Simulated assay, not measured.
Amino acid sequence: MRELIKEAIVDLKRNDGFIYVTAEGKKIDLHEAAARGIAVTPVNPKDQVIKKLESAGLHLTDNKFVADLNELISVLNGGGSSKSAGKRRSFSDDEKSKILEEWQKVEAAGKKTKAAFAREIGVGYQTFINWLRG
């Protein structure tokens, strides 16, 4: 993925505005193609880059995807998300199961109350109780 992104950057920064591809779809320098007598097709690098990134699963023309990707990068870099401020978090069934397994260990050790455990994991007390009732 990293190489794909680096290649996309190089293609987009070309000064002549186009990349040239052979009939087989391989990139080639225009001067080299002329010297070797190879027919080429000029291609807008932006269109080419978008196709390559989308085939790799990066849909950068999809604004929702880009917003999600930017939020992921922000969270990974330690920044909060202004978008999720005050917004409820959803937990998958797998996450709930792991939390409940962890609670069983904590409860067996007798170290915390249900309310303290719920606060620690960032879940409302009543939500946690509902999970326990299952």
Rank of each mutant, 00 (worst) to 15 (best):
E107T: 03
K105R: 13
K105F: 00
G25F: 05
S90A: 02
G80E: 07
E32P: 05
E120M: 07
I19T: 02
G124N: 14
S92R: 14
S92P: 01
H59R: 14
I9L: 08
I19D: 01
S84H: 11
W131R: 04
V40D: 02
A118V: 07
S97M: 13
Q126P: 03
L76V: 06
Q48G: 03
T113G: 12
S74E: 12
L72H: 11
S81V: 07
T127A: 04
A33N: 12
T41Y: 11
I38C: 01
E3L: 03
W131Y: 09
D47T: 07
E120L: 02
K111C: 14
H59A: 15
G78Y: 04
G17W: 01
K105N: 09
S55R: 12
K46C: 13
D68A: 15
S81Q: 06
N63K: 14
Y125V: 15
A118H: 09
D93I: 00
V49E: 08
A33C: 03
A115F: 07
Y20I: 00
K52W: 03
D11G: 08
K64R: 12
V21T: 14
T127V: 07
D94V: 06
K13E: 09
G122R: 11
G134N: 14
A85W: 08
N15Q: 11
G79W: 01
L76Y: 10
K112S: 15
T127E: 00
G78F: 03
A34E: 12
F117T: 09
A39V: 04
I9T: 10
I38D: 02
F18Q: 04
K105W: 01
F128C: 10
I5K: 12
V10W: 05
I129T: 08
E24A: 15
E32R: 12
Q48P: 04
K52F: 11
I28M: 05
A8G: 05
D29I: 06
A118D: 00
K27V: 11
K13S: 08
G37T: 06
N15A: 08
A85E: 15
A109S: 15
R2L: 09
A109Q: 14
N44S: 13
E24G: 10
E32G: 02
M1Y: 14
P42R: 13
F128A: 09
N15I: 06
R119P: 00
D11W: 06
M1Q: 12
T41H: 04
P42D: 08
P42Y: 00
I73P: 09
L58G: 03
V49K: 00
K26N: 13
I99W: 09
K98E: 02
E120Q: 15
G86S: 11
S97A: 15
K51D: 15
V40N: 00
F65S: 11
D16L: 04
T22A: 00
S55M: 11
I5E: 12
G37W: 01
L4I: 09
K105L: 06
A67C: 05
T127W: 03
E95N: 05
D47A: 10
V123R: 06
Y125G: 06
A109F: 09
L58I: 12
E3N: 15
F18D: 05
A67P: 00
E107S: 07
